[in-house]
C-alpha cells in the first residue's frame, strides 16, 4: 500500500516535458489516423444562430437585403475562426442570401474571409458582384467613423471594393443604400471586435439588425450577458460551436474532424488533474503516517 502511495506521490511532480509530449500525442494521433466519432449536442446559442439565419431567409423582405460577414481573424486562429466562417458562408449560400465580406481588425482577415467565399462560391454558383461583394479592409482606428458614416450612406462610406471598383457599379449594391438594407451582422473574431457593431451600427437603423457572434472559445464566455440582453441573436463558440453548426448543416468539416483531438486532450487534462490531486492527498496521508510512527 505504501509503495503505491509513494508512486502516486511521485506522479505529483511529473516533468513538464512529459506532459507536453503526452499532449502532442493526444492531438496528433487522431489527425494522422481518422477516428470515427459521434455528433455533438447542439447548444441553444448555436441553434439560435442557425434559426436567426433561417428566419431571415424565410422573410420575403429581409431575405432581399444584404448580410455583412465580418472576418476579423488572422492566421493564428484559423482552426477555429476559419471553420466557423466556412459554416456560416455555406449556410448563407445554401439559402441564396447575399452577403458582403469585410474586416477591420487585420488586413489578413479580409484576405482569409474572401478566400473562403471564393472557394465556396464555385460549389454554390455564386457570382462576385451580384451575389457577394468584398467591402475591403478598414483600419481599426477608422472603423468607428466608417460605421457611423455607413448608417446613412453605406456605399458612400465604403466607396470601393477591394479590387478598386466603385461599389455603386456593382449589381449587388443596387438595393443597398443605408443601414436599413442590412439583414444580418456576422462577426467572426478572436478578439474584442464586437463593440463597434453594437455601438454604432446595430441599433442605428429603423429596427435593430440581428447580430451573431462567432468568437474563439476564449472570447465567448464574457459575451453570454449579451445573448440575454438581446444584443446578440446567436453565438457559435469556438471549434465546438462550429462542429455543432456542421451537424445542423449536415456536413463533415474540420470542426467535426478536430473533435476527436479536442476530446482526447480534454480527457488528458482531466486525468492529469486527478492524478495531481490524488498525489497530494497521498502525500498528506504518508506524512500523517510518518508523524504517527
Amino acid at each position: 500500500m505504501d509503495n503505491f502511495l509513494r508512486l502516486i506521490v511521485r506522479a505529483q511532480r511529473i516533468d513538464r516535458r512529459i506532459l507536453y509530449l503526452l499532449l502532442a500525442l493526444c492531438i496528433a494521433v487522431p489527425i494522422a489516423v481518422d477516428v470515427p466519432q459521434p455528433r455533438p449536442v447542439v447548444m441553444p446559442e448555436t441553434q439560435s444562430l442557425y434559426n436567426t439565419i433561417e428566419s431571415i431567409a424565410k422573410d420575403p423582405v429581409e431575405s432581399k437585403k444584404l448580410a455583412i460577414v465580418c472576418t476579423n481573424y488572422s492566421g493564428g486562429t484559423l482552426a477555429e475562426n476559419q471553420t466557423q466562417n466556412e459554416a456560416i458562408v455555406r449556410h448563407l449560400m445554401r439559402l441564396k442570401l447575399k452577403f458582403a465580406v469585410f474586416a477591420f481588425a487585420t488586413p489578413q482577415g479580409r484576405e482569409l474571409g474572401r478566400a473562403v467565399a471564393d472557394k465556396l462560391a464555385e460549389e454554390y454558383k455564386y457570382v462576385y458582384g451580384s451575389d457577394y461583394v468584398d467591402l475591403g479592409f478598414c483600419p481599426p482606428d477608422a472603423i468607428e467613423v466608417r460605421l457611423k458614416a455607413a448608417v446613412d450612406d453605406l456605399p458612400g462610406a465604403f466607396e470601393k471594393d477591394s479590387a478598386g471598383a466603385a461599389l455603386t457599379s456593382l449589381p449587388i449594391m443596387a438595393q443597398v443604400k443605408t443601414v436599413n438594407d442590412i439583414n444580418l451582422i456576422v462577426e467572426v473574431t478572436p478578439s474584442e471586435t464586437l463593440p463597434p457593431w453594437l455601438q454604432f451600427f446595430q441599433r442605428a437603423g429603423e429596427k435593430p439588425i440581428p447580430t451573431v457572434y462567432c468568437p474563439t472559445a476564449v472570447m465567448g464566455p464574457e459575451k453570454y450577458p449579451l445573448l440575454k440582453s438581446g444584443q446578440l441573436q446567436g453565438m457559435m463558440l469556438g471549434l465546438r460551436g462550429a462542429s455543432e453548426y456542421e451537424t445542423l448543416l449536415g456536413v463533415d468539416g474540420f470542426g467535426h474532424r478536430g473533435g476527436a483531438s479536442l476530446s482526447l486532450s480534454h480527457l488528458l487534462i482531466i486525468l492529469l488533474i486527478l492524478l495531481g490531486n490524488l498525489g497530494m492527498f497521498a502525500e498528506r496521508r504518508l506524512r500523517r503516517q510518518q508523524g504517527r510512527a
Binding site: A217, R240, L262, S263, H266, I270
Partner: peptide
C-alpha cells in the same frame, strides 16, 4: 471541459 467535448 467535460461539457465541451463530445466524449464528455
Amino acid at each position: 471541459m467535460i461539457g465541451q467535448v463530445t466524449l464528455g
